[in-house]
Design a protein around this nucleic acid. Structure first.
Length: 518
RNA sequence: GGCCGUGUACCCAAGUGGCCCAAGGGAACGGAUUGCAAAUCCGUGAUUCGUGGGUUCAAAUCCCACCACGGCCUCCA
């Protein structure tokens, strides 16, 4: 099967993925994962899910992927902007927030953690992230259960980071400044700026409004970034040749990618905001430490997610977490599709309407899967050997024929919209003569990438159970009214259900209901 | 100031020189169905691609200018 063609941020070109290990793979793929000071929001998940979509697309071509995603549990500083570390430790901020939540009884049941223990805070949010990620079908979050190394935590990689700092100093790419901080010397790496376009002569000191001249005094160049900060007062600290302190925040990915995947890797992903400075700095560190022509062969960056046409940011407070939406009755399938259906190199606009649009599409796919399954079951139970033989000999059905185009669309730089259109077109075609087993297999194969058929149900919770009980009670009242042909009473109950956000459907085989997302 | 991305129907969105009087989904509308609905199924739906020029036999697709929106330039996915 042809290889996946993918855009690469570094060269700006679309190229085939050619695994370092050879055409049979595996493809080595490192994704910048979440920080665990708080719950991940849907913008984070757009980036993680696009990485997941990429790895599933590669796997669809028959090439295995070794996908690593870190979980950043080191408490970095709120004012990392100052590059030499400043402000407050984010883990401490999270701890204070948790302590307050604990006091007011807002902590979820069973979450009895010590808000002064940074690792406990990190683990608390990491567990919640993994729950969300599994619901959304992030494959790496499933794999981590049998292979913990696949989602590494930087707090367990400090020796490797220290080793990298030492090597960078030895090779003349880093120095200890007057304030005792170890900095990377950007002028020692001529390619600095190639990824982001922020070359040293173009970089404007403090253009982001966050770097003050005073904090630059100790550095040889304003763009020099911190590798190790000695700070005995820091919440999390480790011994090092430069005194007890903590590592710079770019270092963890360089160390873990090299340790788990190799000094050179095939793919590296992150959100677009990671391009600079994070990935620019990673490239500098990794290449200067390990040598070699490249760090990652392909850089894969997902653009930001807007919400209802507005920029989403923590400060604006217009962001949703995955859990917020699950609590509203949004299915993981709908959220997954909504976050992945817009091409990764375009800003996506997240809307409740879009979520509903996608849900209808998924429901149609799911109905087809069910009807195919029951057709198979029907043939089996009637022992229709003749029909089975006819099906086996039948020409390919519409879904089976769509698989190739579906895959081709995805292989073309992840053209999800075209892939979905291919599927929808096939579904609208007549498949009366097609073999249901082969058709279902084809649909399932396409779903190995989309990943929606098996997560198309609302997430159960205490609230959803309460709602269900209430709805069941109202529905039986309505059924009684309908049996008595008391339409007025029946409609009153339906209005009541509507007020609860429940849509009633009377079908030939009884009444069903769904939650309306508002 | 530098780097980058986007502008296609009411909404989301594909299309990157002829197969485009432009895919797919949703909404809307019409029909079937229904106690009435919802859901479902069938059908309708842009002679036009931010604006203005240009190149070409041929442009949504290439070039120029302009307008608008978004991202990054050391917190951020």
């Amino acid at each position: 099967m042809p290889a996946v063609r993918l855009h690469d941020t570094l060269t700006g070109s679309v190229r085939e993925i050619e695994p370092i290990a050879g055409p049979q793979g595996p493809v080595t793929f490192y994704s910048c994962g979440p920080t665990v000071y708080d719950d991940a929001h849907i913008g984070n998940f757009r980036s993680f899910l696009n990485a997941d979509l990429l790895r599933r697309t590669i796997e669809l071509t028959g090439v295995p992927v070794r996908h690593v995603m870190n979980i950043t549990d080191v408490g970095h500083m709120t004012d990392d902007a100052q590059a030499d570390g400043g402000g407050e430790d984010k883990m401490a901020v999270a701890g204070r927030r948790l302590a307050e939540a604990k006091k007011s009884g807002q902590l979820p049941a069973g979450a009895d953690i010590d808000p002064s223990d940074p690792l406990a805070i990190a683990n608390f949010y990491a567990d919640r992230f993994l729950q969300d990620a599994r619901l959304l079908g992030l494959k790496v979050a499933d794999e981590v259960q049998s292979d913990p190394s696949i989602m590494p935590r930087p707090t367990r990689w400090i020796p490797q980071m220290i080793d990298m700092v030492r090597r960078l100093i030895d090779r003349g790419h880093a120095y200890v400044a007057g304030d005792g901080v170890v900095y990377f010397d950007v002028r020692s790496f001529p390619d600095y700026g190639r990824l982001s376009g922020n070359t040293l002569d173009q970089l404007r000191e403090g253009q982001g409004g966050r770097v003050s001249a005073a904090n630059q005094a100790n550095k040889r160049h304003p763009a020099d970034f911190m590798l190790w900060k000695p700070d005995p007062a820091h919440l999390m600290k480790w011994d090092s040749p430069w005194g007890p302190g903590y590592p710079g925040w770019h270092l963890e990915c360089s160390a873990m990618a090299a340790g788990l995947l190799g000094e050179q890797i095939d793919l590296h992903s992150g959100g677009e905001d990671n391009i600079f400075p994070h990935h620019e700095c990673e490239i500098a560190q990794s290449r200067c430490c390990h040598g070699g022509p490249a760090f990652a062969r392909h850089w894969f960056h997902t653009r930001h997610l807007m919400v209802e046409g507005q920029k989403m940011s923590k400060s604006k407070g217009n962001f949703f977490t995955a859990r917020d939406l699950f609590a509203k009755g949004v299915t993981p399938a709908a959220l997954r599709l909504e976050l992945v259906r817009t091409h990764y190199r375009v800003n996506a606009n997240f809307t409740l309407q879009g979520l509903a649009d996608g849900q209808r599409m998924i429901d149609r796919w799911a109905r087809h899967a069910e009807s195919l399954a029951s057709a198979i079951e029907g043939l089996r139970s009637t022992g229709a050997a003749a029909a089975a033989a006819r099906h086996a000999a039948a020409a390919s059905g519409p879904l089976e024929r769509a698989v190739e185009d579906f895959g081709a669309a995805l292989r073309d730089d992840l053209n999800v919209a075209r892939a979905i259109a291919t599927l929808n077109e096939a579904l609208a075609k007549d498949h009366a003569d097609a073999c249901p087993a082969r058709e279902l297999a084809a649909l399932r194969r396409m779903d190995t990438v989309l990943g929606v058929l098996d997560r198309n149900a609302p997430v159960a919770s205490k609230a959803s159970e309460d709602l269900e009980a209430r709805v069941t009670e109202l529905l039986s009242r309505r059924a009684a009214a309908r049996a008595a042909r008391d339409w007025a009473a029946s409609d009153r109950v339906r209005d009541e259900l509507q007020a609860l956000g429940v849509q009633v459907k009377d079908g030939p085989s009884g009444t069903t209901w769904t939650r309306v997302v508002r």
